[in-house]
Design a binder for these strands. Structure first.
Length: 771
DNA sequence: TACCAGAGGAG
DNA sequence: AAATCCTCTGGTA
């Protein structure tokens, strides 16, 4: 048994050698492949001439005519084998200029990846059975000037935790009287770094986890190590950690011992207000983790108070332990994505959803002998960005409270449309099929009924496999195996749900606006028809969005009858649907309130509140407003008690006025979505961030600003401050009453049919304190 | 008051 | 570096 952890290539004696980094039952193994040549394809309008011309070029090892699939035809192209991977880009440019060349293809696939595609090897296979050794580490650094500068501020501690149970904090400060079994005091920063590196090797670690290691820990470690002329040789082949560019950010690569940065993964899979290690830990395990404000690290270190130092060492240790625990929880899904897309985990763990879909499609295309299209040029991308199309349909809700609500939705609507209608760039408007009825082609395009497209086949594969996994899941009793199967079905769902968005993504290789548009149009037809049928059936349609419909029978008190009628209805609809499609009875809600499109709340039979779109779901509203809104919803939906709701609002306003609301209830979290200088209109979060920058804090695109509206300043933006610079009690009570709590609760009361005057009175009265 | 930029959610 | 649909806020004229 073995698992492929990483792959690369080296040049030895002017020959290219692929290296496969395996973990086997016996340990680590680097296997070499020496007979795999770099190659690419040339489409030519004169194969003979092109072949002769290309054969004369330096570094070309062979040219042969091969048959490949292009869109829906088989065509002959030239396969050009070359000496070294670096010859590919050179030769591509030369050959592009040749008279008969129409296009050069597959000349931008990285060589090691090319081997992986062609060999069909599945990375991370058996990863769970081989008991991989996982470690995590974390640095604490000196930071007297606010943000630490690696050029001058030393690393103070390195914490380390691994799956064999080893725990360490290395430091070089003697603190008398402290005995902690994980604490290891060494002579210098240099020795600390060396101990860490040696431990990773001695422990034979397979995967290294960090929390933000790409952009902090590894770059910092590298720079500090460089000062001492130490090489951070953590690679299995004794190579250094390499910092590569990944778009705007860095990526720290450890050869053969994949480094997984958990921070970007957490940002991708969780939707939180903050993404500190503490917040993510709380979200995942519902446990508080020890936290020390990083900006205080230097003063703590300088003071060297034994009691405080003990806390800091414990905190440092908890960082590594938490990161390890998060890693162990998150890695199985990452393994699975790596296996399904067949991409090494270092890359797949850092991939966007469009990249993953594309990786999968490229591998499927190779299997089907399809010639892979080139990436679109920037000019084409810009052109594609200009065009838009009509997407999903949203039903105007029947506003207010309703009882006995049934929810139907189409199971995986878009994937099932892609499969059922064979939607693919290569099947669109084929000449072998006739244009069908309007339902089949609402955008005027039709899709081939004879030949399955690459994308429908791929989505079909994912969906079928998911059905099988779910079947196995049902029969499985072993909880561990159940977990693996559940992760597998999650990964399959993730990928099949990304396919529609991929079609409309301007940088996609298999971009097709027409396909995206057709999928959306068909989606609208299915939901429209369902709504129409529901109304004909005597249901009241309360709301619907994209693939869902909320219905009830107004005046009907008999819940059993409503549910029975609903089930009858869905099976009736399903009889008329194509194979892969299904309308599901999703749930029953005794009570609910619809405010506007995409904003509503439901209470289920267990009394659990389900809220969509309202302020309580948004990170850019304060907790005080969100909490109050939740309590008001609860009073209305559970207790049917508007007076109680009003009391809640009054009490909250009193608290705000009294000035004793905690800052953390008042913080508003808003992301910086563009460059700090690109704003035409800067909102409060940008103004707050600019003020913090003047005080030495760093803010960049992608960061979330955590701010409070204080009393100092004229406009709201003027009054907004980053929370770390706000003193206790320094908040603008009027803002939190009039711009946070009241709007959030009024919206709900308004939908209940309170007259505007009543509400104004309520609001005004409350604002003025005439309670 | 009307409009726009900006943010973030739903599905 | 997935799409569109939609609501709402705060700034500006």
């Amino acid at each position: 048994m073995e698992t492929l952890l990483d792959i690369d290539y080296i040049i030895r004696d002017e020959k290219v050698v692929i290296r496969l980094f395996y973990k086997t039952e016996k340990g680590r193994e680097i296997r070499e492949v020496k007979d795999f040549e770099p190659y690419f394809y040339v489409i030519s309008d004169n194969l003979e001439e092109s072949k002769k011309e290309i054969e004369k070029l330096d570094n070309v090892k062979g040219v042969k005519v091969v048959r490949k699939v292009e869109v829906r035809e088989k065509i002959d192209v030239l396969k050009v084998a070359v000496k070294l991977p670096q010859n590919v880009p050179e030769l591509r440019e030369t050959i592009k200029g040749f008279e008969h060349t129409k296009e050069v293809r597959e000349a931008a696939i990285p060589f090691a990846e090319r081997y992986l595609i062609n060999s069909g090897i599945v990375p991370m296979e058996n990863a769970e059975h081989l008991k991989l050794r996982i470690a995590s580490f974390d640095l604490e650094v000196y930071n007297p000037g606010g943000e630490p500068r690696a050029g001058q501020d030393p690393i103070l501690m390195i914490s380390y935790a691994d799956s064999t149970g080893m725990r360490r904090v290395w430091t070089y400060r003697e603190t008398p009287g402290i005995k902690l079994d994980f604490l290891n005091i060494v002579k210098s920063e240099q020795e600390m770094i060396q101990r860490f590196i040696q431990t990773v090797k001695d422990q034979e670690i397979d995967i290294l986890c960090t929390y933000n290691g790409d952009n902090f820990d590894f770059p910092y470690l590298n720079e500090r190590a460089e000062r001492y002329k130490i090489d951070v040789r953590l690679g299995i082949d004794e190579s250094r950690v390499r910092l590569g560019r990944r778009g705007m950010n860095l990526g720290a690569k450890v050869r053969g011992r994949p480094h997984i940065d958990l921070y970007p993964i957490c940002r991708q899979i969780f939707n939180l207000s903050r993404y500190t290690l503490e917040d993510v830990y709380l979200e995942m395990f519902n446990e508080e983790k020890k936290d020390i404000n990083a900006s205080e690290m230097f003063s703590i270190w300088d003071t060297n108070d034994p009691e405080v130092m003990r806390e800091v060492f414990a905190y440092s240790m908890s960082d590594a332990i938490s990161a390890l625990r998060i890693g162990l929880a998150i890695l199985p899904l990452q393994y699975e994505i790596s296996r399904i897309t067949r991409v090494p985990i270092y890359k797949s763990s850092r991939s966007s959803s469009s990249q993953r879909v594309e990786d999968l499609l490229i591998r499927r295309a190779f299997k089907k002998n399809i010639l892979i299209p080139n990436k679109p040029s920037d000019r084409i991308v810009k052109e594609r960005q200009r065009s838009s199309y009509i997407g999903a349909y949203v039903v105007e809700p029947k506003k207010g409270i309703h009882d006995n609500i049934v929810l139907f939705d189409f199971r995986s609507l878009y994937p099932s449309i892609i499969i059922s209608h064979n939607i693919d760039p290569s099947t669109i408007d084929c000449s072998c099929c006739k244009k069908d009825d309007a339902f089949q082609s609402p955008t005027g395009h039709h899709f081939c009924k004879n030949t399955k497209g690459l994308i429908p086949e791929t989505v079909g594969g994912l969906v079928d496999r998911r059905i099988q996994v779910k079947e196995r899941l049902k029969k499985e009793d072993d909880p561990e195996k159940k977990r693996f199967l559940n992760v597998e079905q999650q990964a399959l769902k993730l990928l099949s749900n990304s396919m529609y968005g991929y079609f409309a993504f301007p940088r996609a290789i298999w971009y097709s606006r027409d396909c995206a548009e057709a999928i959306a149009a068909l989606g609208r037809q299915y939901i429209h028809n369902t709504i129409e049928a529901a109304e004909k059936h005597g249901f009241d349609v309360l709301y619907g969005d994209t693939d869902s419909v909320y219905i009830t029978i107004s005046g009907e008190k008999d819940v059993k009858r409503i549910i029975a009628e609903s089930k009858k209805f869905s099976s009736e609809i399903n009889r008329g649907l194509p194979g892969a499609m299904e309308l599901e009875f999703e749930g029953f809600y005794p009570r609910g309130i619809f405010i506007t499109k995409k904003r509503y709340a439901l209470m289920d039979e267990k009394g659990i509140l389900l809220v969509r779109g309202l302020e309580v779901r948004r990170r850019d509203w304060s907790n005080i407003a969100k909490e109050t809104q939740t309590r008001v919803l609860d009073a209305l939906l559970r207790d049917n008690d508007p007076d109680k709701a009003a009391e809640i609002v009054k009490a909250t306003i009193q608290r705000i006025k009294a000035g004793d609301v905690e800052l953390k209830e008042l913080v508003i979290h808003t992301q910086i979505t563009r460059g700090m200088n690109e704003y035409i209109q800067a909102g409060p979060h940008i103004i707050a961030a600019r003020k913090a920058i003047k005080k030495g804090r760093e803010f960049k695109q992608g960061d979330i600003v955590h701010y409070v509206v204080t009393t100092k300043g004229s406009s709201i933006s003027d009054r907004a401050r980053v929370v770390d610079f706000v003193g206790k009690g320094d908040y603008d009570a009027n803002y939190y009453i009039n711009n946070q709590v009241l709007p959030a609760v009024m919206r709900i009361l308004e939908a209940l049919g309170y007259s505007e005057d009543e509400l104004k009175g309520l609001g005004k009265q409350m604002t003025l304190g005439g309670l």
